[in-house]
Design a protein around this nucleic acid. Structure first.
Lengths: 187, 187
DNA sequence: GTCTATATCAAGATAGAC
DNA sequence: GTCTATCTTGATATAGAC
């Protein structure tokens, strides 16, 4: 059943956002879906297989967000913020970004998953660089650096937001916009 | 032996930076120290007790860094950067900030530790706010927001830095300084 | 204060029935 | 494709000897 397979991926992905790859078990998934552990093992023989499928699922979502935003007819300077919020919207208040979550578990992941997490981490920054380069605004000389700051701060903010609430994520986005606007030089 | 006790805390703290609270075991610590699991249990009956001791240890270091920087005779505008780098210096390239690490594990921590992690997360931002307020520079109207951005971006950068290398942490700090300098209004 | 030994439990995984 | 049953391993934790 292909449906069951993608259902498992979606639920496992949510578990990663909530508690991390190392901290969810096949039994957690089985109980939630209403089947047995063995049935999860049928679809994904090893947890590593499921982990890789989840990474592929995240990559698909990332690619999709980028392509969608790139082709949308909105102000070109707004695209970067649209991209960021389209990614952040998928994360509930008691969750964090699944890529951050797997970054924390990194040293305990199978090497195949380490490679995937590395690729995802890189790709995410690449997409932000592209959107910044396509924009008509020149904020700093170092577009790669600005991209790294944007991604780092959003990810960090989501982690603090879960613990402290206080609209911390919203606050950080507002600060970034303020600082960037104060530095914009039209090309 | 009080020495053994603090030795356990230091090694456990390093383990948290490397792999997280949930992912290190008493056996890991025992092997590293050269004693048995049971001996760790003697000093910290439950892992939760050790976890709380580690949180207290982190708080001590945080307080110490703040007080030291606050009383150092350096340019008052530099103190915030000194504070951040004094904290980041303690983290090796294959580690992340221990507070970030426990934030990721948050939903699986015993409630007593959740309270400690919450307190640490809050305190860290408070110290940054204080240093910004004492500074002679007014960057934005929203000092709390700027503090949240600084802490979030540094924590996020350390996580990406471990996976991607590329001096990502250094790059992010440089970007923050650039953006902030472009927005400074002398009081 | 540190040890051996052991209890208990949960996790990942596999074999084989239906 | 999903099940029951079972194996193995590793983790937290405890009892009691030295």
């Amino acid at each position: 059943m292909e449906n069951r397979k993608s259902q498992i991926i979606e639920i496992a992905l949510r578990n990663i956002r909530e508690k991390g790859y190392l901290s969810f078990s096949y039994d957690d998934l089985a109980k939630e879906i209403g089947v047995t552990k063995a049935s999860i093992h049928y679809h994904f023989e090893k947890k590593e297989d499921l982990g890789l499928a989840i990474c592929a699922r995240i990559k698909k979502g990332l690619d999709h967000s980028y392509i969608e935003i790139a082709n949308t007819k909105i102000n070109i300077e707004d695209k970067i913020w649209e991209f960021i919020s389209s990614r952040a919207e998928q994360i509930s208040p008691n969750e964090i970004c699944p890529i951050s979550s797997m970054q924390t578990d990194y040293n305990f992941l199978p090497v195949t998953m380490q490679a995937s997490v590395q690729q995802l981490s890189h790709l995410e920054i690449e997409y932000v660089i592209k959107l910044l380069e396509e924009s008509s605004l020149q904020v700093t000389q170092d577009t790669k650096g600005l991209a790294a700051l944007l991604i780092s701060s959003v990810k960090g903010a989501l982690q603090y937001n879960r613990i402290l609430g206080e609209n911390l994520y919203i606050t950080v986005i507002a600060q970034l916009k303020l600082l960037i606007n104060g530095n914009i030089k039209k090309r």
